[in-house]
Design a protein around this nucleic acid. Structure first.
Length: 933
RNA sequence: GCCGAGGUGGUGGAACGGUAUACACGAAGGACUUAAAAUCCUUUGCCCAAAAGGCUUGCGGGUUCGAAUCCCGCCCUCGGUACCA
């Protein structure tokens, strides 16, 4: 059967044999369900590109691997055919979106099937079909009925090219996520989903195996910040200006108040004298685009309103200014300005010559110079290895610290840390601030004090699953470090507090001091540390009803309405008598009519379709008007993974049993560019459905694998840049398996890679050589022993699969093939080819068949190989850490024997002569290091 | 500015604190061939004629018997974010 490897023939053959539809979402008793998913894509006529191939290949490898492990794998497929991208492409091609997407889906289907993906086409869904969007609309009505969908007038982003509003998440650096046009602000009445209701829930990634980077991105996007609201009563008026601040400890340093130009009180605040100037300023600000406001030149501008407010503690009169450095949409749209301790306020004060009042003084110096502030140091950590003492300053870290793991069951971690620290240090006034439930990775990273302390002692943090934590805990358990608490006197003698060094640096750079410290010029609060002062000042205000603790988020509600045609109609009807109401379930779907003048003109196209717009009221039967906006396509894709578990169900969006069995998705693959779009929306919808009792879980994706992008000439591949590599051409030349192999071999799957055309020849040659080796297998040879090379390949491929280092899987297979040098016995071939199978499915299937098997290799099981211990051990021999020789000995050799042999090696001996051996490092089976002098 | 990821040969990239440069591409030389392609063999981090030896993971320090890896201080590249109080 010696013949040349002909990938095209083999691949076409197996694709015609493999079943396309398998109903794999239907579970049988005893099945172990495993859900592998890649992100639903919108079908474009341009076809598949590298952006599809990479995640698709990764997901397919994982699906096939898990199939071989004996799991029942669901690997579904569908198209997100609704939405702007599809509609824009249709318009460009002069077609109706419905026809255009049907054609594109046909092309896509053919191309995907040519990839040899293990998709189950019986799951096929199309978000633009009434059978699907009926349930997208149903989800809207469910959220509406529970107060999670609402319409309101707001300043929203508008894309002048796409002629529609956009969600905040869809504006990338001031440009439309789809077309790249500069967006502008408009005041419009729009529909929103109340994602802010879930802000805190979305901050927790507990139990999820997600890349830290994506978690950080989402955490920053949500932007939680804790502080206080403080009310400033306007002089000679009943009006109150409410400000938000994270620094209530600086209240005594407030020298003016700033409101945003959009603030509702601006008109009331201006006086006859200032009216002209203020109105001109506000008008000017409204004309300024956000792009201008984002420009580099940030010279602060503003104008005095003519009004004053009363300071809630001193009763002093404080001037109120309008300035556009305060944004109207965050917090309360007003700030208390503390120019002494805030960079922006300082700059503004400089421009308009406003008073600057210092109220915080940093603690400069060492603790022994300032014993009175010792309360702000919460932990002293001793690292015996380096004999150094570290402090942890709670104010810097904002999180939960578990000291030594002595937490009793159910005990609050903060309380525990406080108790332990107080017990251990004898410090009585330990100050805690920012008591958040968990430490997020970002907090952890920018607190150098804490990071240092953890490294030194392995203090356990309550972090979401994070590899570095495990390593550190391990170190602590192995007793590499101990925690030693000093008395204050002992510590004072030896400690240098890193925080204080940091303070010096800030001053050296000439910045405004924005850190924590001790209050001065603050009357009754003088001498308190920032941490303590915050609590006391807020408590004081609260007792008078002038302030309270509060939390702000950067996250805004999700704007879901679009003034475009190609989307699910928002299922709302407004009747003069009965008011606004959602369409009842039995009248869903609200069908999107086809005969619509859909070219974007700024208004909703459905508005111009009288028989759609004018309808009857579901309640009273009278005349009523339909909502003519359509839903953002991200709504369609925020629940599709649920539909796959029961894709044809006509009476429900999904079945509870299906969701219970399959969700959360075990392995989800896609580009990290969706970190704060799709991935955040999908989590929100899942949490909302969970709150309403429709699903038993609140997270959709257990493991998310974010694949990197493929670049060409240093830039993301895109048609407009003209730097596209067409996968089809590669497949035509080298075959699908070579293409898959190369996609994986290029580099780590989670990192961006630069496309190198030549690289694929290496994989192609490898397959060719492998083919020759398998073809030579002597099937009459009954030997069962497996060569060390095959054993190693088995070990390595397994290890690399666990770590998702697919590039190393391929190189391990290459190494094995080089090692066996064209000769494998039948037993070895049967193991090796199954290791090939997830990566090179067609190739493996053909070889498997040639080896005499009548059923598919994917009905076989992943091999189990017993690893035999090696007979010999190979030592590296060093002198003073420099490599001098290698030494092969029997694995059973004793330590002193090996050392004796090593010291006699000529290459070693010459470096030992005339010197005395101070120490000999011996690591069994690995290394010998002679330390000489 | 802030947050995150990264910096290793000519290139893509390997390396639980333990032989740095695996695997592959490319290049050079050779074999086969009338010739080319394909294939096979050899060489391929730098210095030195070779050997011996020395140097080398962005830069500078440190810890360690031993550092690409850990710590401290910098520089550069790429992503995210942006007057968020």
């Amino acid at each position: 059967m010696e013949q040349k490897y002909n990938p095209h023939e083999i691949e076409a053959k197996w694709r015609s044999i493999w079943p396309k539809e398998r109903d794999s979402y239907k579970l049988q008793p005893g099945d172990e369900p495993y859900y592998v998913l890649d992100m639903i894509s919108y079908p474009s006529s341009e076809g598949l590109h590298m952006g599809h191939w990479r995640p698709y290949t990764i997901a397919d490898v994982w699906a096939r691997y898990n199939t071989l492990l004996g799991k029942k794998v669901l690997s579904p497929v569908g198209f997100d055919a609704f939405g702007l991208p599809a509609e824009n492409a249709a318009i460009k091609n002069g077609r109706h979106p419905a026809d255009y997407t049907v054609q594109s889906m046909g092309n896509f289907t053919r191309q995907i099937q040519e990839m040899g993906k293990m998709y189950d086409w019986s799951t096929l869904i199309n978000t633009s079909s009434p059978e699907y969007y009926k349930w997208t609309q149903w989800i809207f009505t469910q959220l509406y009925k529970n107060g999670l969908a609402y319409k309101k007038a707001a300043a929203v982003w508008w894309c002048p090219s796409c002629q529609t509003v956009l969600a905040n998440e869809q504006v990338i650096s001031g440009e439309c996520e789809r077309c790249g046009s500069e967006v502008i602000r408009k005041n419009l009445s729009q529909w929103f989903f109340k994602i802010t209701d879930f802000a805190d829930d979305l901050l927790s990634f507990e139990g999820l195996n997600w890349p830290a980077q994506v978690k950080t991105l989402q955490t920053n996007w949500i932007g939680k910040s804790q502080g206080a609201e403080i009310d400033f009563k306007v002089v000679n008026s009943e009006d109150v200006i409410r400000v938000f601040t994270t620094r209530p400890d600086t209240l005594m340093g407030v020298t003016y108040i700033v409101v945003a130009p959009e603030h509702t009180l601006v008109t009331a605040l201006m006086t006859d004298e200032t009216k002209g100037k203020v109105e001109a300023y506000v008008l000017d600000a409204s004309k300024k685009s956000d792009i201008d406001r984002m420009a580099d030149d940030r010279t602060k501008t503003g104008v005095f309103t003519g009004s004053y407010v009363i300071h809630p503690i001193t009763n002093a009169h404080i001037p109120v200014w309008v300035a556009d450095y305060v944004v109207g949409t965050y917090g309360t749209g007003a700030v208390m300005a503390v120019p002494a301790h805030d960079q922006r306020d300082y700059e503004f004060a400089q421009v308009y010559d406003l008073p600057i009042q210092t109220v915080i003084e940093p603690v400069v110096g060492t603790p022994q110079e300032h014993p009175e502030y010792r309360q702000s140091i919460v932990a002293l950590v001793h690292d015996p290895k380096q004999d150094r003492y570290l402090t942890i300053n709670w104010g810097e870290m904002g999180g939960t610290l578990l000291i030594g793991g002595g937490r009793e069951e159910g005990e609050d971690p903060v309380a525990c840390a406080q108790r332990e620290i107080e017990e251990e240090t004898g410090y009585s006034n330990v100050a805690f601030i920012n008591k958040t439930e968990t430490i997020h990775h970002s907090y952890f990273a920018h607190s150098k004090n804490v990071a240092r302390a953890i490294d030194a002692v392995g203090v356990s943090f309550e972090l979401a699953s994070d590899a570095t934590t495990a390593t550190r805990l391990e170190a602590a358990e192995q007793g590499k470090f101990t925690v030693e608490w000093l008395t204050a006197d002992e510590a004072d003698k030896r400690i240098i507090d890193p925080l204080h060094r940091c303070v010096f640096e800030r001053f050296a750079k000439g910045n405004v001091y924005t850190g924590y410290g001790v209050l001065v010029n603050s009357g009754e609060f003088d001498g308190l540390t920032s941490e303590v002062a915050k609590d006391k000042i807020v408590a004081h205000l609260e007792s008078q009803g002038r302030g309270r603790l509060t939390t702000q988020y950067r996250l805004r509600d999700w704007l879901i309405s679009r003034q475009r045609y190609w989307g699910a109609p928002i299922p709302v009807v407004t009747c003069e008598k009965c008011g606004e109401q959602v369409v009842p379930d039995d009248q869903l779907p609200v069908v999107l009519p086809k005969d619509v003048e859909f070219l974007p003109t700024g208004g909703s196209p459905l508005e111009r379709h009288p028989s759609f717009k004018h309808t009857t009221c579901p309640t009273c039967g009278g005349d009523a008007i339909r909502e003519t906006d359509t839903l953002d396509t991200f709504v369609d894709s925020s629940w599709y993974f649920l539909r796959y578990t029961d894709p044809k169900n006509p009476s429900a969006p999904f079945s509870l049993e299906g969701v219970k069995a399959w969700l959360p998705v075990d392995f989800y693959v896609g580009g990290t560019e969706h970190s704060i779009l799709h991935l955040l929306y999908a989590r929100f919808v899942m949490k909302a459905l969970h709150r309403l009792g429709h699903v038993p879980y609140h997270e959709p994706f257990q493991t998310f694998f974010g694949n990197g992008m493929v670049y060409l000439n240093g830039k993301k591949m895109s048609k407009s840049k003209g730097n596209i590599v067409n996968p089809d051409d590669m497949v035509k030349r080298y075959g699908v398996d070579a293409m898959r192999g190369y996609i994986l071999f290029m580099g780590p799957a989670d990192q961006d890679v630069e496309w190198q055309e030549n690289g694929i020849t290496g994989v192609s040659r490898f397959l060719d050589k492998a083919w020759q080796s398998f073809a030579k297998v002597d099937s009459s040879n009954n030997a069962t022993s497996l060569s060390p090379a095959i054993q190693k390949a088995y070990q390595d491929v397994n290890a690399h699969l666990q770590r998702f280092t697919f590039n190393r899987c391929i190189s391990s297979l290459m190494i094995a093939l080089n090692e066996v040098n064209g000769h494998v016995n039948k037993a070895e071939a049967e193991v090796l080819i199954r290791l090939f199978a997830p990566f090179f499915p067609h190739f493996a299937e053909e070889v498997w068949s040639n080896l005499g098997h009548t059923s598919s290799i994917f009905e076989a099981t992943w091999p189990e190989v017993k690893i035999e211990a090696s007979q010999t051990a190979s030592y590296v021999v060093q002198v003073n850490g420099k490599l001098r020789a290698t030494l092969d000995v029997l694995a059973t050799a004793e330590e002193n024997e090996v050392i004796a042999l090593a010291s006699e090696l000529t290459a070693v001996k010459s470096h030992l002569e005339g010197k005395s051996i101070e120490k000999t490092i011996f690591v069994a089976g690995r290394i010998i290091n002679f330390v000489v002098r």
